[in-house]
């Protein structure tokens, strides 16, 4: 066997082992912590597969923020199976058989795909057009130029999700004020995270980084603030918060419409401007993603959330 494959086999084995341990653990807190470790390991795998953009995003979003959201949700309860119906032995066998057969089938298809004749890929086109995209990081070019539609709709998904969070729940109780040591750490960490987010946002044009990584890093700063007892977690309240949440989608849409009115297609940037346009869109997207994630961590609408109809609110609570 080729010895250079050893690290890959080791990583793959550890991924499967961690996923198995996280999913089969009866103690949910343990499961979540194992899941965070799984995410961090996955970030290493992305780096191994030459996807540094994804490694950054996975470490910040997949491991960090997902873990934070799941851990804070553990406080809400809902972890224990209250009326758990254990599947019968026959059903367990059937499920295991199904899983085994499907794994083999998917594996077979992947085998055929990887060892098939090489086909024309979008990669050549993506790399050939890079000079005209306004940025030199191919992933950013795909996200904000070639496939800007996808990213616009993704921001809509984020907006829809955070609106759902706001509609169904109120903010959780905050944490008590941090002790002096944690307080000192916060004074260092939060500015550092903000500067890092700014750097990731700027560097995304020509190196790994971009709006998503920056937004997640900024959200991490908010979560640290909240854990230290700053209940607002750095978010403004009232109308300004609403503007912040829609900024990404709004700016993106506005630019797209402006382009289609000025003769080009929807989201077809004029070539000379594309670099600056992409940067402005990314700044707005970063702000919106960070605000949405921090608000989701806070758990729902804040006390200062302007309501259209106070009576409807009271009815909903008493029902």
């Amino acid at each position: 066997m080729n010895l250079t494959l050893l690290p890959d086999l080791l990583l793959a084995g550890m991924l499967i082992g961690l996923a198995w341990a996280a999913l089969s653990s009866d103690d949910l807190r343990r499961g979540v912590v194992l899941f965070i470790a799984f995410g961090l390991l996955l970030a290493i795998v992305w780096a191994r597969l030459l996807a540094p953009d994804l490694a950054l995003a996975e470490a910040a979003i997949g491991a960090g923020l997902s873990g934070a959201l799941l851990l804070v949700a553990l406080r809400d309860g809902g972890g224990a199976d209250q009326h758990a119906t254990k599947p019968s032995t026959l059903n367990r066998w059937l499920i295991d058989l199904f899983v085994l057969v499907m794994t083999c089938l998917i594996g077979w298809v992947l085998w055929l795909t990887i060892y098939a004749e090489p086909v024309e890929r979008l990669a050549q086109l993506a790399n050939a057009m890079l000079d005209r995209s306004g940025v030199s990081n191919p992933v950013t070019a795909v996200l904000l130029n070639y496939r800007a539609y996808d990213t616009l709709l993704e921001l809509v998904v984020v907006l829809a999700a955070v609106l759902g969070v706001v509609v169904v729940g109120r903010e959780r109780r905050g944490y008590r004020e941090a002790g002096p040591v944690f307080h000192g750490l916060v004074h260092w960490l939060v500015p550092l995270l903000i500067v890092t987010a700014g750097y990731l946002l700027w560097v995304g044009a020509h190196a790994p980084g971009g709006a998503f990584q920056a937004g997640a890093t900024l959200a991490a700063a908010g979560i640290v603030l909240r854990l230290a007892g700053y209940d607002a977690a750095g978010l403004p309240d009232g109308r300004l918060l609403r503007w912040l949440l829609v900024a990404g989608t709004g700016v993106f849409l506005l630019f797209g419409l402006a382009m289609s009115f000025s003769g080009g297609g929807f989201l077809q940037y004029p070539e000379a401007w594309s670099g600056s346009l992409i940067l402005i869109i990314e700044v707005a997207a970063t702000a919106s993603i960070a605000a949405a994630l921090v608000l989701a961590y806070r758990g729902g609408r804040t006390d200062g959330w302007p309501l259209m109809d106070e009576k409807a609110e009271n009815r909903e609570v008493s029902s």
């Binding site: 996807a51 959201l69 990669a123 790399n127 996808d150």
Partner: peptide, 21 residues
Amino acid sequence: VDPVPHALVLTGLVVAISATA
């Protein structure tokens, strides 16, 4: 590497955490 799947996965990561939230 092919940047197109990378961009799709990046989108997927953000959508996944939104759905989780």
